[in-house]
Design a protein around this nucleic acid. Structure first.
Lengths: 226, 226
DNA sequence: CCAAAAGTGTTCCGTCTACACCCATGG
DNA sequence: CCATGGGTGTAGACGGAACACTTTTGG
């Protein structure tokens, strides 16, 4: 079905990481300013080239843990980007991956080391090459799956309040939700479990902390929060 | 953000086409038997290598029109597949694309020319390399979007009966639908328009033919048929 | 005692589901 | 005249949306 290998021109292949975080009621992405040409000074995703002996997934994992120092993170491929002029230097196609991390686990000193910052998704700057398109598609995927898969817990600490969870949903979906209806739905999800712990940092009264239980989550049951 | 180009090893990049068709109440895919090694004799998708001066999308379009003789077809990227051992010969990553075609427009003589056949998605044979995974993901995407985007009309002739439309939905979703409820929903979709034409080939009484009107379709209105 | 966030139920309305019979026609 | 697929309506169940007040406590 395919031509023989001879005369086929190989192409450079890279991966780009879209790292989502949630802090201060806002959804954010790790972005840096390119330190080299082409595109020096432009805001950009963090990426790297795929090595001959590693799969795309492995390359993405390596690049992500290089940046964050974390491993076993949630990752998902967004798509391949292959316009001929997407890299002004050479012909490079890039495969975008998105991951969700808990900002508390992300060491701030790495931010300076890698020259990256958390940027609000609401007001993104102009981005290098097609990175804006990658982010837009990642947001789309996130929105489409957040209500049916238990993804959001990757963005939260192990223990979280219902108010936190709700504002996370609001940040991702870009709309306000009704508190009572939201909490009613949470009650119907067995994998979201109330603990005896109380968080007193955000209110005088204090709010109960909840946790997500992987074991309580039944794979084929629908996980619908909106 | 990225290493310099020097010392980066380029990789072969191909595209694979998942061509869906609908005939005789069944959803089908165009598959061929590989005529060359690696993998000679195994069922496989039709694909081709990406050329240096063409984008991924262009490569997919070229490959698809090579196979079908048709152009301006609906196409959508499914994802990039990059396990190191996915091609037994060389390191090749492949980007899968799915397209939806109307089997009536597909010239049967091309089937023999390219050695491909329409195979029911219900009972797919074992496939070469990761092509099975590609098809599974394409089916997933199709199922997830068929109820909110007007995709199905790409699989039907310009004029179609409601029974045809319903059995197409049933084939894609893999479940039976209630005739009266289905038709009730259709009535609520302004872009699906009844014509005066009647199809008498499938019943003595005859069935009214409908058409999908692109101009009657409002982009941001939800297109929900299930 | 008051500001600020946490927590809690009910009603209404629209949507989805289940369900069975008559129609038109060619052979 | 009968076999075959085409076409139609209603009632009841269910789930989603709207909506406002009380509780707790640190300062």
């Amino acid at each position: 079905m395919e031509q023989f290998y001879e005369d086929i021109q190989p192409i450079l292949v890279s991966v780009d990481c879209i790292v989502f975080g949630f802090d201060n009621k806002k959804l954010k992405i790790l972005l840096g300013k390119r330190k080299m040409n082409p595109g020096e000074g432009k805001w950009s995703l963090y990426g790297g080239f795929v090595r001959p002996n590693e799969s795309l997934d492995m390359a993405a994992e390596r690049t992500l843990s290089e940046l964050t120092g974390l491993s076993n993170l949630y990752m998902r491929q967004i798509g391949a980007y292959g316009d001929t002029d997407r890299d002004p230097g050479k012909r490079v196609i890039s495969v975008a991956y998105c991951s969700l991390i808990n900002v508390c686990e992300y060491d701030e000193s790495r931010q300076k080391e890698y020259g990256v910052e958390w940027v609000n998704v609401e007001n993104l700057p102009e981005l290098y090459s097609d990175h804006g398109k990658m982010i837009a598609q990642a947001l789309d995927v996130l929105r489409n799956h957040i209500t049916t898969e238990p993804l959001c817990f990757n963005l939260l600490p192990e223990l979280f309040t219902l108010t936190q969870l709700q504002s996370l949903y609001e940040a991702i979906l870009g709309e306000e939700l009704d508190k009572r209806n939201f909490r009613k739905r949470i009650k119907g999800v067995p994998s979201i479990q109330k603990t005896d712990n109380v968080d007193k940092t955000t209110s005088r009264r204090g709010a109960y902390l909840y946790r997500f239980s992987k074991s309580g989550f039944i794979k084929d049951s629908r996980f619908v929060l909106k």
